[in-house]
Design a protein around this nucleic acid. Structure first.
Lengths: 161, 161
DNA sequence: GCATAAAATTTTAAGCTTGAAGCTTTTCCT
DNA sequence: AGGAAAAGCTTCAAGCTTAAAATTTTATGC
């Protein structure tokens, strides 16, 4: 078979970036698996439900379904299903929107808010433990680099979430 | 309500780590969405199928189902479904294992290998473009930090994937 | 040789996710 | 005023994912 030619200068960054991506994926999958397991065993809940509750906790007046879809960056159909289950659990309510019978506004119930506060504290502690090897300077550095990754695609509202 | 006390020194790293985690998630979700869209429109395929083909490409002699599950860090049931579809497409075959009728060994077909080589080149180019803002030094740095995140949980075989 | 434990994979139930279609309602334009 | 376009959400089909159960087969121990 053909001999390997020495890597040209522009070849290296491409392979580096691919290796970086695979490392990021491995790390994220590991952390998500830990969070999923903890949420399931300690709260009988799931990551997507936690994410929805987190988003609604940031907006006490609630969000419309389309807004929730936009904040979470998931499809409308997905949001419908997750909200259905949170409503079944009593953690969330759908309310009608005056003047627009198409729309629905989704809000945490007081029971949902109480539950989320407990889950959020645990979640933060889990993340703190899992990322214990990272100090604040490193966290800032990685965050800035990831901002640079996102910048060409997200314009001004980088910190929006 | 109670007044906010100034953040204690040990509070800061916890919030920093949580913010870092959210930033990592946002970045990964964005990149995965781009890759998914590209694979769907250009190759009529999906990320999980690509991942399976990538794993099998690294092991030309093939992998058993359980081994594939271990390499990809997903459940056995998930692997069964994805392999079913790759078999339907003709990119992968299941072969019997001499001496063990329970087991099956999964291998890329030559057509699968040819297809994967094309998809892999495109995938690397997409990653290279999406992570263009990251240079090799930064990639190495992030990778080392993520290794530190994984180290307590993975022991020696950090580079195995 | 036989009973039990373990292994390998598939199947199952439940949840999540996308992208598109469907339905209803509102807005826009003439 | 009325029709067309757009909006808001749900439903649908297909794929992915987990965790556990089920089934078949192999290994182990006596």
């Amino acid at each position: 078979m053909t001999a390997k030619t020495p890597a040209s200068p522009q070849e290296l960054p491409s392979k580096d970036r691919l290796r970086l991506w695979l490392k990021i994926l491995k790390t994220v999958r590991f952390i998500e698996a830990e969070l999923r397991e903890n949420l399931r065993t300690e709260f009988q809940s799931t990551l997507p439900r936690f994410d929805v509750m987190a988003a609604l906790h940031r907006y006490p007046a609630g969000l419309k379904m389309g807004e929730l879809s936009g904040v979470l960056k998931v499809s409308n159909g997905n949001v419908t299903g997750i909200v259905d289950r949170l409503v079944d659990e009593g953690h969330v309510v759908r309310e009608s929107v005056p003047g627009d019978r198409r729309a629905a506004r989704v809000r945490l119930t007081s029971r949902g808010r109480d539950e989320f506060i407990v889950q959020a504290a645990a979640h933060e502690a889990w993340i703190n433990g899992l990322l214990q090897a990272v100090d604040s300077a490193q966290a800032d550095e990685i965050s800035l680099i990831f901002d640079q990754i996102l910048a060409p695609h997200f314009g001004q509202n980088l910190n929006d979430h």
